[in-house]
Amino acid sequence: MSEAVLRLSGLEKSYNRGKPNEVRVLRGVELALVPGEIVALVAPSGAGKSTLLHMAGLLDVPDAGTVEIGGREMGGLGDRARTAVRRREVGFVYQFHHLLPEFTALENITLPQLADGATERAAQARARELLSRVGLEARADHRPAALSGGEQQRVAFCRALANGPRILLADEPTGNLDPATADRLFDVLMELVADEGLSALIATHNLELAARMSRVLRLDGGALHPQA
């Protein structure tokens, strides 16, 4: 069996800890994500999907439990080291694209690579390759305002993959799109994940899209359960 590229063990997270209005969001979450696996994360709004993704992607720290990426436990790392791991190992896609409006599609994908030490030539080549694979090579010099919602999200996918991460975390990546566009965009995402050899954890309300993934997990009562 393949070694898990992402392992969550006993994750606990509460808000307003120790106060009368304390809310326990995660209660001992366990997850092992193996290479090449695409896992759907489903739950009602407010159940903690985003919180779980933030823990997995090192954007927040749990109250208890551990996060391992590539077999390395992340809890003892300082902020700078966590940022470096996040930049190189984890790609994020959100419901809203969060592209930088003053930069072109090409520049939005190039910038994360430059921040990680790539040369401008190599970064632009990688950006153009990714844009070509999602059918947007002709839109490389357009700013986000000149792109449709589906095009903006395809650029966001490319940006998430720019540094060659091993893990993709996506929080309702098609939730802001009409059903037909969402379905087409999901196909693009699955192709990118397969081509890049990624492992992916994708939060979605769309049960039809979830059923097309390797497996489906439901966040219920602060813990993960296989979806029946």
Rank of each mutant, 00 (worst) to 15 (best):
D171L: 05
A127V: 06
A145P: 10
E191N: 06
I109A: 02
F92Y: 14
E120D: 13
D171T: 10
Q153C: 10
T174F: 05
Q152P: 11
L111N: 08
L189W: 01
L131K: 01
R159S: 03
A210Y: 02
L106M: 05
D195E: 14
A146D: 13
E107Q: 15
A105L: 06
E172G: 07
A180R: 13
Q113K: 10
I202K: 05
R133T: 06
G117P: 01
M190R: 11
R159N: 09
L177E: 13
G150E: 13
E107V: 04
N206M: 03
A162I: 07
F157Y: 14
P179S: 09
A162W: 07
D141N: 11
L99Q: 06
E172A: 01
R184P: 02
E137D: 14
E137V: 06
P101Q: 00
A118L: 15
E151K: 07
A170I: 12
Q152W: 12
A140F: 02
V93F: 05
E172I: 09
A200V: 00
E120V: 15
T110N: 09
S148L: 01
L161N: 02
E137N: 09
I167M: 00
I202L: 11
A138F: 07
E196K: 02
Q95V: 11
D116N: 14
D141R: 10
T181L: 13
L207K: 05
N176T: 11
S214L: 00
A105Q: 08
D116C: 15
H97W: 13
P165H: 06
P179R: 03
